[in-house]
């Protein structure tokens, strides 16, 4: 009978839950309203504008060769940027968490700088070193390499900042246990550390992918916006359309970019959850 006694507390807890419900409704309403005003309604308006001419019109816009080229370039460069980010972002996080050296906190603060800087300044910063008047004679202006560099600069924090807290919280005992069982440092990293970082790594990679797809400010200076050079990314095409008063085309392209970003976020989020789902308790 003693085992049943906790059940007696349930009705009382139910009462508490009801007042909680009222508060929950208010909080939920507030956040839903805010989200709608700031994000959902503008998106819906964009969707409405871009499809006013029918899905056929959107399709027509995509199949223009320059647009198709820009789309390929955008996705391609972003993918490469994400892979580099995943590797170096993790590496930087590792050094920041596991290593100890003078000036570590300064380096740690530096990671967030690309977030704080206006992206146009980011472009300018890169051109100062790797531009036409480069002091080290490396000129990436108006090249795809330049675009990749700009995207790497602005997406640097995503993976590092996603991985860092997980690495801090990672149970060192696991690595010691693996070592005693005979695993070398490489095996420990591959079989123990990496799988535990996986979900955070994917989440950070997804964010940096989505950001890279849509980046404008940092790229615009470096890429030079010339379709003939093959350095025109989607955001630049959209900007060109707006400058040429082709608003429906701009809206259609925006819609595509939006759909792409959303798809990337969903896929990476899914993967991340699938990885963590079974053991995250």
């Amino acid at each position: 009978m003693a085992a049943l006694s906790p059940a007696a507390a349930v009705p009382r807890r139910g009462g508490v839950a009801r007042t909680d419900d009222a508060a929950a409704v208010v909080v939920r309403g507030l956040s839903a309203g805010y989200l709608s005003l700031i994000v959902l309604l503008p998106l819906a308006a964009l969707l409405w504008t871009s499809t006013r001419g029918g899905i056929g019109a959107v399709w027509q816009t995509i199949t223009i060769p320059t647009v198709l080229g820009a789309l390929e370039l955008t996705v391609g460069v972003s993918a490469i940027v994400v892979i580099i980010n995943a590797v170096f972002g993790t590496l930087i996080a590792w050094v920041l968490v596991r290593d100890s050296f003078r000036g570590k906190s300064a380096v740690n603060a530096l990671i967030d700088l690309p977030f704080a800087l206006p992206t146009i300044v980011a472009g300018l910063t890169l051109l100062a070193l790797y531009g036409p008047s480069s002091p080290v004679h490396v000129n990436v202006a108006y090249t795809r390499m330049g675009i990749a560099l700009a995207l790497l600069f602005v997406t640097l924090p995503f993976v590092t900042r996603a991985v860092q807290p997980v690495l801090i919280a990672l149970d060192r005992d696991m690595e010691e246990a693996a070592a005693v069982l005979g695993a070398g440092s490489l095996a420990i990293f591959r079989r123990i550390v990496l799988p535990n970082l996986g979900p955070a790594l994917l989440a950070g990679a997804g964010l940096s992918f989505a950001r890279a797809l849509g980046e404008f400010g940092a790229v615009t200076l470096i890429a030079g916006n010339n379709p003939l050079r093959g350095t025109q990314v989607m955001s630049l095409v959209i900007f060109g359309d707006i400058q040429g008063y082709q608003f429906s085309s701009a809206a259609a392209l925006s819609f595509i970019l939006l759909a792409l970003s959303l798809a990337v976020l969903l896929v990476f989020g899914r993967l991340s959850r699938a990885l963590s789902g079974h053991h995250d308790r």
Binding site: D171, A177, P195, N196, H279
Partner: peptide
């Protein structure tokens, strides 16, 4: 280990 050191992902 005292706190098991179980490989959580396995």
């Amino acid at each position: 280990f005292q706190h098991y050191a179980a490989f959580k992902h396995m």
